[in-house]
Design a protein around this nucleic acid. Structure first.
Lengths: 170, 170
DNA sequence: GGGTGATCGTTCGGTACCGAACGTTCTGGT
DNA sequence: ACCAGAACGTTCGGTACCGAACGATCACCC
């Protein structure tokens, strides 16, 4: 859809000019601005599209999908590393696990020998769900990167990893 | 932090192997997977870090900041294009505008000649706020892209724009 | 072995965010 | 001049998500 680099470019320049006008003569890092702001926009677009086209049919959310996926790949695990892997605050995970538990996609079990810990794992239904869902999800991911060749995808992933490292530093 | 491409690589491979084990022999587009999943992770990391280090001092959220910024750059505008520019559902915008209005950073005015429309603009306090905040914000953006040279930032922005276009297609 | 401090998951309060439904206001055709 | 439908912002119900505070459990040490 729409190879219109000219329009894009023009729009971009108009925005830069407006920003520069608003900010006055102070210097501004437009390159970083454009890169970073597009990260957020891309993430939101990808999420919305995936939830709308794919996940809503299964009644699960983006975050819920992430949890199922991690459990599928790594198997039963405790709440804290699961939250870390899903990039969620542990308080957030608690609520989402409860939701997934109600849907019977996930179950909690107590850790043998440490009553503080909880072991989270997929139910059979959860296993079936993610197994059916993931191939479709991956095809979506492929579609989202349409127009980028393999080397570019690698580059994109690498640069984003760099941003993640920077943002999580300290 | 830490330049440890070896560890990163190893971790990545371990993950890929775990995924492949879970998925069995079905083919999988790892390149797209890595690219797309990093987008979301980077966006979350950037947002959290910015809210924690910068915005919380001013009592505003990421979304609130976006609204102030857009109004600052583009001036008074109606709700619908503002929502589009901020990448928000219009229902979401309503609530956030109410929050910002309570903080007296933003004001609503009725459109002359069309009572359905609303004109949203910055108050003086809002103007001061964003003007003080934005340079710091931009420095954060620069810090997030630390380690990428100018050409890479351009590339990153371009590839993300591509993803956005793909995800918003239709 | 009993108490102090760390570690775990949950709870709590608050905002963000979405999609759908809604009421109001405008517009175009006749 | 009217009325059917479009356009606008708000309301509503629901989930996600965070950070801080909390209670329960465990580990260490004298």
């Amino acid at each position: 859809m729409a190879e219109s680099p000219t329009n894009e470019q023009a729009e971009l320049l108009a925005q830069e000019k407006a920003v520069q006008a608003a900010i006055g003569d102070r210097p501004l890092d437009f390159l970083s601005l454009n890169a970073v702001s597009n990260i957020y926009r891309a993430a939101a677009a990808v999420r919305r599209r995936t939830e709308r086209d794919l996940l809503s049919d299964y009644g699960i959310t983006w975050g819920g999908f992430t949890i199922l996926w991690v459990l599928w790949v790594w198997g039963e695990m405790e709440a804290a590393p699961l939250a870390a892997e899903c990039n969620l605050a542990k308080g957030t995970l608690t609520g989402m696990l409860t939701t997934l538990e109600k849907q019977e996609l996930v179950r909690r079990a107590q850790h043998p020998g440490d009553k503080r810990r909880v072991l989270v794992g997929l139910t059979d239904a959860g296993h079936d769900c993610i197994e059916e869902l993931y191939p479709k999800f991956n095809r979506q991911e492929t579609a989202f990167t349409d127009g980028l060749d393999d080397a570019e995808k690698v580059e994109l992933a690498r640069m984003l990893r760099r941003v993640i490292t920077n943002a999580e530093a300290e």
